[in-house]
């Protein structure tokens, strides 16, 4: 479902968010706005989902006994809740040089951090453990998932201090992280994925093999999506430094075609291994990404 077609959503444009320097405030703004747009109380969230009752058996925690029901029925029943707190979310953010590209005010990396912060805040509100991993051709920074109350601030501070790193090579850091992250959880990969597709899929496969749910956000700048260049331009690859002089209009069709082919290839192969793939242009509101995330979580539960 395309977010633009959701009339209920209140969109917060990335350019507007870029004026909020505090990531926590930004994340809060986004998430609270998003949730209120769903017309649901944020305090009735899914973090403490009631599942069912079962008869009390010895050894059960007396705290879980529904005493009101006991008063009415004179029988001991225990409430059963979904084990939310057992879920951890690991936010994987690509900090390779290509993520620094922007044609406007918000670079892909900025957008990635907005998104990661918003997701982190969202998870934190759900009382779930949130972790962060920044990587390029290796793991640059890793904050393991935790539920502690001040942990989110730590995650956000790491994002705030992060800088662009080396040219990306996703295979190696993904495999390493998969090894570290043995406990099943939610892997959110935020990247432009401008890398070897086979290595990427291999890395994701490793996560999937470990039992992780993988949600991929591929970020593209609008200019990368539309390629509205003209005249002779000498393009410099931000990853490799390689230069190429091109007549932009001449190259546009080919470029768009190649991008589309690439996206389809990634999407298909992600689908094949059960990873959720989302393509986002950085001029899209963050709500869309949050919606995708939520939809993905709901899908997982069902």
């Amino acid at each position: 479902m395309e977010p633009q077609k959701q009339p209920a959503l209140r969109f917060l444009k990335p350019e507007v968010l870029s004026r909020i320097s505090n990531l926590q405030l930004l994340a809060k703004t986004v998430v609270e706005g998003f949730l209120s747009g769903l017309h649901k109380s944020p305090y009735k969230g899914a973090s403490v989902e009631f599942m069912s009752y079962r008869p009390y058996i010895a050894g059960d925690n007396p705290l879980h006994v529904d005493w009101k029901l006991f008063a009415r029925t004179d029988r001991l029943y225990v409430k059963e809740f979904e084990d939310e707190t057992n879920t951890s979310v690991n936010l994987l953010v690509d900090i390779s040089p290509s993520m620094g590209y922007t044609s406007g005010e918000v670079s892909k990396l900025d957008y990635a951090f907005y998104l990661a912060a918003s997701l982190g805040y969202f998870m934190w509100r759900q009382q779930e453990a949130v972790g962060l991993t920044l990587f390029d051709d290796k793991i640059v920074q890793r904050v393991p998932p935790r539920k502690a109350s001040g942990h989110l601030l730590t995650v956000l501070q790491h994002m705030h201090r992060a800088e662009l790193g080396n040219p990306s090579s996703m295979g190696k850091p993904l495999h390493q992280l998969a090894e570290f992250q043995r406990r099943r959880g939610f892997i959110v990969l935020i990247s432009d994925l401008l890398d070897d597709v086979d290595a990427l899929i291999d890395g994701i496969k490793h996560f999937r093999f470990q039992g992780h749910e993988v949600l991929i956000f591929q970020l593209f700048d609008p200019q990368e999506v539309n390629f509205d260049f003209s005249d002779m331009i000498e393009f410099e690859d931000m990853e490799t430094g390689e230069k190429m002089v091109l007549e932009a209009k001449s190259a546009k069709d080919i470029y768009l075609k190649n991008v589309e082919t690439f996206r389809q290839s990634v999407a298909e192969r992600c689908a094949q291994i059960g990873a959720e793939y989302n393509f986002i242009s950085t001029d899209q509101p963050l709500d869309f990404a949050l919606f995708q995330f939520l939809a993905s979580r709901i899908k997982k539960r069902t």
């Binding site: 290509s98 993520m99 590209y101 892909k108 432009d192 401008l194 700048d221 990368e224 260049f229 005249d231 002779m232 331009i233 000498e234 393009f235 410099e236 690859d237 931000m238 990853e239 490799t240 390689e242 190429m244 002089v245 091109l246 007549e247 001449s250 190259a251 080919i254 470029y255 190649n258 991008v259 690439f262």
Partner: peptide
């Protein structure tokens, strides 16, 4: 001059140009 002094633009990646057939240009 325009050819020589082509505007220089940093772009995220040239991986999508490498398949550009030059004869079209």
């Amino acid at each position: 001059v325009r050819r020589i002094q082509a505007k220089q633009v940093q772009f995220s990646s040239l991986m999508f140009f490498k398949m550009t057939p030059k004869e079209v240009v």
